[in-house]
Write a protein that binds this DNA or RNA. Structure first.
Lengths: 194, 194
DNA sequence: ATAAACATGTAAACAGTTACATGATTCT
DNA sequence: AGAATCATGTAACTGTTTACATGTTTAT
């Protein structure tokens, strides 16, 4: 999958491994992330398969860059992948796995975990909104753009933001529900004791 | 991570690899999935590490089962894991990666992809809601339960359902937005032509 | 001086999917 | 007779993370 993200990025313009790695901290981070230790070997493999062509570009004072460009074969591969109908990805959610097992820890510990998780998602949401503000400053009203690249990027950003908001709302709801559950249990015990 | 899912399931009662695999088609499927080819080797590893104990249980007519039970060490490991504060998982979303590249395919193909994806999520949502109905039939009003295990399970189910609904709503919104984008582009061209 | 950014790689471990492989029992 | 379910494994491949490893340039 990483290779398709790389092909899409190189479709815009040739980039080095280092440049690509920085791109994975930008707009694409909403739905894909990659470390340099995964990027460099993948670029080599893709070059061997004829999807990319590499060129060493020396720079007077700075280290020489190895710049990769997409080949016609790479273009065809990317477009063929876009036309496939993929299956649904299976969900892997560590927080929900923990939540499923929270009956094994004290109630306060469960609350602390949920609050911590909510804070992390709130931070990520703020980051996404900052990126959106940035795009708005540069391009004006995003949903009225005439640029297809920006248009699709804005749609993915919207999905990322909606996803974070849903997660945060769930955390808040779960904390309220848990409080109600604890109150109920306490009253139950009081009743039995009294 | 799989091991903690297994430990949680074995905390309730001892199970064979085959039983565990079926559990991964039940309530836990909302946030974790595992194939038998991953389960069997993992069980062996966990037994070697002293987290589980195995017992061969022969059955008059059916194949002998190898039933695993959680050990005190396994219990401690599970509880220690529950008290850790994990980092946010990085998002990996194939559909959004595709969407990011949809400027490379014809608009109708992009629409077909989004509709297909919406259908898949709608099916998954129906499946989750069927599971919830089942739980309601068995246990009555789920949010008023006094059983901590059921309580936390219901919270994870709610998150799974909210997640699917957000995704479906995004697909519908994206289709509307894309139609508006296409209309705008057409009017733009008409204007230039006229 | 030293920290941050530029620049590129490898190695080991961990995680997950798909395909291969076998054989009994039960239901239609 | 054939399909479904029970039951357990291995092999090959693909993907991802963390740590190791090195060296330059630029800004403070």
């Amino acid at each position: 999958m990483l290779r398709y993200a790389i092909l899409e990025l190189l479709h815009h313009k040739p980039l080095s491994g280092y440049d690509l790695r920085r791109r994975f901290g930008g707009s694409i981070v909403f739905f894909w992330k990659a470390n340099h230790s995964q990027i460099y070997p993948e670029l080599k493999r893709m070059e061997n398969e004829g999807l990319l062509s590499a060129k060493r570009v020396p720079h007077e004072w700075r280290p020489t860059k190895k710049v990769y460009a997409i080949t016609p074969k790479g273009q065809r591969d990317l477009e063929a992948w876009l036309r496939r109908r993929p299956k649904l990805q299976s969900v892997k959610d560590e927080m929900m796995l923990r939540c499923f097992a929270f009956h094994l820890v004290p109630a306060d510990e469960a609350d602390a975990q949920i609050r911590h998780h909510r804070d992390l998602h709130e931070e990520r949401l703020r980051h996404y909104i900052a990126i959106r503000k940035d795009l708005e400053r540069k391009h004006g009203r995003l949903l009225e753009t005439a640029d297809p690249i920006l248009f699709w990027n804005v749609l993915t950003l919207r999905q990322a933001i909606a996803h974070e908001r849903t997660y945060i709302a769930w955390c808040r709801w779960a904390l309220r529900r848990h409080q109600a559950f604890r109150d109920r249990m306490e009253r139950g015990h009081a009743h039995l004791a009294g």
